[in-house]
C-alpha cells in the first residue's frame, strides 16, 4: 500500500490548502502577545505544528526540498543571541537586564509595550523552529541502527 511517501491524497490536499491559515494564526498570536492571551511560546508552538503538519502529510523528502534545515538551525541560534542582545542593550541603556528601553506607546495598540513584542517575536521564532527541529531530529534516528550487545 505504501506506494509513495507521506499520507493519502486526502491529507495532502487538505494540508496544502489549509497550512497557510495555521501560519497566519500563529503569527497573529505572536504579534498580539502583549495585548491578548498567547505570546511567543503559544504562537511558536502553533507555527511548529504547521511545519509538522506538512512534515507528517508529505514526508521527509519533501521537507528537505522545501526547507533549508541548516538555515533553520542558524535561525534558532540567532534568535536566542538577539534575545540576549536585547537584554544587554537594556543594561547599557537603563541598567537592568532586559529593561524596557523603547517607548511604551499607547495601550491596546499594536506597536506598544516597548521591547516586549520584539522579545515575543524572537521567542516565537525560536520555539517554532526548535520544536520542529526536535521532531525532525527524532525522525532522523533509524530504529534498526547501532545495536550493541
Amino acid at each position: 500500500m505504501k506506494s509513495q511517501e507521506g499520507m493519502t491524497i486526502i491529507v495532502k490536499t487538505v494540508t496544502r490548502i489549509s497550512v497557510w491559515l495555521i501560519f497566519v494564526y500563529g503569527i497573529y498570536i505572536i504579534f498580539h502577545g502583549h495585548l491578548t492571551p498567547g505570546g511567543g511560546f503559544g504562537g511558536g508552538v502553533i507555527i511548529a505544528l504547521g511545519f509538522l503538519n506538512v512534515f507528517l502529510a508529505y514526508g521527509k523528502e519533501y521537507i528537505k526540498k522545501w526547507l533549508n534545515i541548516g538555515l533553520l538551525h542558524d535561525l534558532e541560534a540567532t534568535s536566542a543571541i538577539l534575545f540576549v542582545g536585547i537584554g544587554i542593550i537594556g543594561i547599557a541603556m537603563t541598567g537592568g537586564f532586559l529593561a524596557n528601553f523603547l517607548s511604551k506607546g499607547t495601550l491596546f495598540r499594536l506597536f506598544s509595550a516597548g521591547t516586549i513584542p520584539l522579545l515575543n517575536i524572537l521567542i516565537g521564532a525560536k520555539v517554532g523552529v526548535a520544536l520542529f527541529l526536535v521532531v525532525w531530529s527524532l525522525s532522523l534516528f533509524h530504529i534498526d541502527e547501532g545495536g550493541e550487545q
Partner: peptide
C-alpha cells in the same frame, strides 16, 4: 479579520505577515 480593518498599524503588520506566509507556505 482577526484584528481590525481600521487600524493602520494592523494593516501594515498584516502586509508583513501575508508576505511572510506567502513566501513560506504559499
Amino acid at each position: 479579520g482577526l484584528t481590525s480593518f481600521t487600524d493602520l498599524q494592523e494593516v501594515l503588520a498584516g502586509l508583513v505577515v501575508a508576505l511572510l506566509v506567502s513566501m513560506l507556505a504559499g
